[in-house]
Amino acid sequence: MGYVGQRLIQAVFVLWVVATLCFLMFRLMPGDPTLNYIDTSMTEEQRQNMLVAFGLDQPLYVQYLIYLKNLLRGELGNSFLQGRPVLELVLEALPLTVALTLSALIVAYIFGVIAGAFLAWKRGSLTEGVAIPLVLATRAAPEFWLGMILLAIFAFGYGWFPSGGAASAGAEYGSEWERLFSLDFLYHLLLPALALAVYLQGLPLLLMRSTMLEVMQDEFVTMARMKGLSEWTIVIRHAARNALLPVATAFALGIGGSVGGNVVVETVFSWPGLGRMLVTAVQGSDYPLAQGAFLIIAAVLVLMNLVADLLYGWLDPRVSHGRKG
């Protein structure tokens, strides 16, 4: 319990520092902070009301306290451009980003784990010699460029897939769930998820391969051989199960990392998720929305770092089961 508690405190601390940084970045940058915060098209009276509501007429530390208080209440202000509460907008975009991230990650990790184990098996072969530089190349390719190629071939070239967006024009659904599980949504999801998956599969693949190679050297694998267990049992039940520990951790970290990293893929495919929201908000000087999107992305990242730590402990009995011996 001490371990979990310690991790939790650390995560809360990091979140607090990130929120503070965010406050400083958005308020202390050159220029009049009120101009950053307040829509220029407002009348003077509206402007004054706004200033008071956000405490912008107060000294900085008071503003900071108000900011923290508002954050805790989930009060992130209103978007300039859309006039709606930031929290509402962000929570609308979040499921779309999560759907994209998760589907890409799952495909990438299933492929990566299997291919990585296979390459560990085939070590020293020609297949390996060709595959490793190829995999490294996918890691080196900008995600948006992979997206552009996919778009050029499958959306514009063959016309098999839509060139962007998350839904066909005029499509309406009864609920968010219905939308996320509709065929139309899947049809729109496929290309961006594929682009992301191509980029993401390299990490689990290389990780799986190198840990497999390491584990195969371990004495308990030799012992499994001495026991006359079948090759399948040795590779799957012993080697792969052990090699999965770091891969599972990487998966959790990957969720956090790619919710933020999706920014470019979402932009290329006009996917209305959090990342694209952040980019358009920043481009349109919609600072409350930009700050809200940034904070949520950071929160997901910190949360997933925490989950990764806990997951590792849970999967590895050496951490989760204390020493009795």
């Binding site: 001495m226 026991k227 199960r241 052990n242 009995p317 050496r318």
Partner: peptide, 19 residues
């Protein structure tokens, strides 16, 4: 293997699967 002849490894070695 193991039915006719078995092996006892060095203690220091990680002979048991940790998971």
């Amino acid at each position: 293997r193991w039915k006719e002849m078995a092996f006892i490894p060095q203690t220091a070695m990680n002979a048991l699967d940790p998971v």
